[in-house]
């Protein structure tokens, strides 16, 4: 909560969506959606499949272009037409549900590719940064392995490291445990727990309700492309005000 207060004092939110609308053909996925995320804040997005969680994240690092509204990063509009997305993407990392590691490259190369090609680091410096991160997250012995030699949990940890190595200000996590066997979920969530409080802003789309409750500063319930309810984890999970949130949580808990 201290980070939250501090960032509010400095003014502009880290990430801000204002009246964002996004459609795929006739299917409107985000509907007049507004959301502010402060620097260093951890916000979880929960909601049914199709409620717009993934699309929201992809709009923040410009993998999707919005139809209407604005997306701001540190108060600067990043959704402007014709804006070069690459500088934004350097500051906003994303981890995907299906890992998306590059299968033809070793773990180390997966991590160093963008360090050398985008940030212009020397090979040695890039390798050193990769090794430090791999060591920190218990994967030092996997540097030379290829993605298909790793378990799903290990692959997803590498994917997180690959995004972290770019030292982004914001990290988007898109249902990063949904493709994992239940016993592998813990090791991936541990990595995220370690990131909290490091100053990085986390925006997490997730189906892991217990995890969302534990790690979030705020929880945001999306319904049909809009924010139906947003508040502290204890409020949203403990005393949801919106009827749709109540229904959703009942359905999730009955499983």
């Amino acid at each position: 909560m201290t980070t939250l207060a501090a960032s509010r004092a400095t003014g502009a939110p880290k990430v801000s969506l204002r009246s964002v609308t996004k459609s795929f053909g006739t299917n409107t996925v985000l509907r007049d959606l507004s959301l502010d995320v402060a620097t260093g804040e951890v916000v979880s997005l929960i909601g049914a499949s199709g409620s717009g969680k993934t699309t929201l994240l992809r709009c923040v690092n410009l993998l999707e272009q919005i139809d209407d509204g604005v997306v701001l990063l540190d108060g600067d509009e990043i959704s402007a037409i014709g804006l070069d997305p690459n500088p934004v993407r350097r500051r906003v990392g994303i981890v995907f549900q299906s890992f998306n590691l590059f299968p033809h490259m070793s773990v180390a190369r997966n991590i160093t590719l963008a360090l050398t090609k985008v940030l212009g680091l020397e090979n040695d410096a890039a390798t050193q940064r990769a090794t430090e991160l791999l060591t920190r997250f218990g994967l030092a012995d996997k540097a030379g392995a290829f993605p298909d030699q790793l378990s799903g949990g290990q692959q997803q940890r590498v994917a997180i490291i690959r995004a972290l190595a770019m030292q982004p200000e914001v990290l988007l996590l898109d249902e990063i445990t949904s493709a994992l066997d239940p016993e592998l979920v813990g090791e991936v969530l541990d990595v995220v727990r370690e990131l909290k409080g490091s100053g990085i802003t986390l925006l997490i789309a997730t189906h892991e309700m217990a995890f969302a409750r534990e790690i979030s500063d705020r929880v945001c319930f999306l319904h049909a492309g809009s924010v139906a309810e947003i508040g502290s984890p204890s409020q949203v999970f403990g005393a949801p005000r919106d009827e749709r949130t109540q229904q959703f949580l009942r359905r999730v808990r009955s499983n």
Binding site: R89, I94, F96, F102, L113, A114, K117, V118, R162
Partner: peptide
């Protein structure tokens, strides 16, 4: 694969 690469700023 393209999404992953572009998201890293390539």
């Amino acid at each position: 694969q393209r999404a992953a690469a572009r998201s890293l700023g390539l």
